[in-house]
C-alpha cells in the first residue's frame, strides 16, 4: 500500500515536471544583414527569455593592403548608445517577466510579422534593409507593448547575425 502511495506521488511529480518542461521554449535565427538592419527579440510579457546574440562582420578584401579584414559594423541600441565592431562580437540579453497574463494572446508587431502567441511566446528576428520608420513606428511604438516585451537594436553594415533564444512561459 505504501508503494502505491509512493508511486502516486511520483506520478504527480512527473506530471508536474512534464507540465513545467512544456513551458520552456527555444528559438533560433540566423541571417545575413546588409545596410540598415534590425534585430528584434520579443516575448510575451509573462515569459522569461534569454537570447544569445552573435554578430560576425563580413570579411572584405582590402586590395591595397592585400589583406582580408572584417567589415565595420555599427550597433545602435534602444537607449541611443552605439558600438562599433570590426570583429566577431557576442552578448546575452535577458528579458525578465514583466506581467502576469491570463488568456491567450496573439500579437503582431505593427507591419512586421513577429508573431507572439501562447504557443510561441518568444521570438527572434533579423530584418534586413529596414527603413528608419521601422524604428520609429514599428518596434519603437508602444502599440501592443502592454502584451509583449520587445528588445531591439539596429545594425549598420554587412554581417552575419545568429541568435539562440531560450524562454520560460509561466
Amino acid at each position: 500500500m505504501k508503494k502505491a502511495w509512493l508511486l502516486l506521488v511520483l506520478i504527480l511529480v512527473i506530471a508536474t515536471q512534464w507540465t513545467f518542461l512544456s513551458a520552456f521554449h527555444s528559438v533560433s535565427e540566423s541571417q545575413i544583414t546588409n545596410e540598415t538592419s534590425a534585430v528584434v527579440i520579443s516575448k510575451a510579457n509573462y515569459a522569461f527569455m534569454r537570447a544569445h546574440i552573435e554578430i560576425f562582420p563580413e570579411y572584405i578584401v582590402n586590395y591595397t593592403a592585400q589583406t582580408l579584414q572584417q567589415a565595420n559594423v555599427t550597433l545602435t541600441f534602444q537607449d541611443g548608445s552605439q558600438k562599433q565592431i570590426t570583429e566577431n562580437y557576442a552578448f546575452d540579453v535577458f528579458l525578465t517577466r514583466t506581467a502576469s497574463h491570463f488568456g491567450s494572446i496573439s500579437a503582431v508587431t505593427p507591419g512586421y510579422s513577429i508573431l507572439i502567441s501562447d504557443d510561441h511566446p518568444i521570438n527572434a528576428a533579423v530584418m534586413s534593409n529596414v527603413s528608419e520608420d521601422f524604428f520609429t513606428y514599428g518596434v519603437g511604438s508602444s502599440y501592443l507593448l502592454d502584451r509583449i516585451d520587445v528588445y531591439w537594436f539596429k545594425i549598420e553594415g554587412d554581417a552575419h547575425v545568429s541568435i539562440s533564444g531560450y524562454g520560460l512561459a509561466i
Binding site: 515536471q17 518542461l21 522569461f48
Partner: peptide, 25 residues
Amino acid sequence: AVITALSIATALAFLMLAKFGVLFG
C-alpha cells in the same frame, strides 16, 4: 514501477536543471 518512476523523475529534474541553467545564464 516505483524505480522506473523515480528514474524518470530524476532524469526530468536534470533536464529541468539544464533548461533553467541555460535560461538564467
